[in-house]
């Protein structure tokens, strides 16, 4: 009895916080989304799922986030493996600091960096013009967005994966080696399964971060609509609260759905062998 009461004392503030700052605003948001926007004849949810403009925005967002997540994992895995396996090559600390430097940057700064690198006055532009006479500008299209996303996803992911690689027992790899496994087989049979958890967690974090990314896209002023920008537009430019709320709910649900599928797949791979 005493133990149960102690639990209540500990749990009560958490429950209050959860209700006040999560459940109530969420319910309110979901409720606003059910309202009918001015001059329309259906609820905002209906509009959001039927109008191609919003659909396109959702597809853009999911595609870009999935692509950026996969690219991040593909780049970060070999880099993390190298850094974890070579704890003391010259310049390692400097390299680590450089890699982790953009961690604290807000999206606006990342967007600005992308413009500096690949914008109309950017380094890439100048270089390509000098080399081929043809200026190359990536910043304001899909490629620019993609580069921007990598900027803020890579440092986060490298940190997580490095720790995971360091956690792999090197005797597992040596045992596989003496049993005849080539480096590739050791990677596929032993390392990847050991990293599944970390890859899933890092991937989920990347995807969720990318889905909600705003500052970078905003700064790049791209023609491509992603959901956070669409929400911002509906909210500030058109004062269309119901649609903004409905889109927010859709953004949350889409993110949750993709993460759910990814987690189930990862769990199945982990059990599969």
């Amino acid at each position: 009895m005493g133990r149960r009461r102690a639990w209540l004392v500990i749990a009560a503030p958490a429950v209050v916080l959860f209700l006040a700052f999560w459940l109530l605003p969420m319910a309110k948001l979901a409720g606003i989304g059910a309202a009918t926007p001015q001059g329309m004849d259906a609820s905002a949810y209906w509009l959001v799922v039927t109008q191609p403009r919003y659909w396109q925005s959702l597809i853009n967002t999911v595609a870009l986030s999935l692509g950026a997540t996969l690219a991040t994992l593909v780049i970060a895995l070999p880099v993390s493996r190298f850094l974890a396996r070579h704890p003391d090559f010259p310049g390692r600390r400097v390299l680590m600091s450089l890699l982790l430097f953009p961690l604290a940057f807000p999206g606006v700064v990342v967007g600005f960096l992308v413009i500096l690198a690949t914008g109309r006055q950017g380094v890439l532009n100048t270089l390509s013009k000098a080399l081929s006479g043809d200026p190359m500008v990536l910043a304001y299209g899909m490629a620019g967005l993609f580069i921007g996303y990598l900027y803020f996803l890579l440092p986060r992911t490298i940190g997580v994966l490095m720790t995971a690689v360091e956690g792999i027992d090197k005797h597992w790899l040596e045992a596989a080696q003496t049993l005849g496994a080539s480096p590739w087989r050791r990677f596929v049979d032993i390392e990847l399964p050991a990293l599944t958890g970390a890859l899933t967690a890092a991937g989920a974090m990347c995807f969720a971060t990318a889905m909600g990314a705003f500052g970078t896209v905003f700064t790049l002023g791209t023609r491509i609509d992603v959901l956070p920008i669409t929400i911002y537009d509906e909210f500030t430019n058109y004062a269309n609260l119901p649609v903004a709320a409905a889109l927010s709910v859709v953004l949350g649900l889409a993110t949750w759905a993709v993460l759910y599928v990814a987690n189930s797949l990862a769990a199945r791979t982990a059990r599969g062998n």
Partner: peptide, 10 residues
Amino acid sequence: FQGYALFPNM
């Protein structure tokens, strides 16, 4: 191996 190094995923 010392500690056996059995593969935990199999």
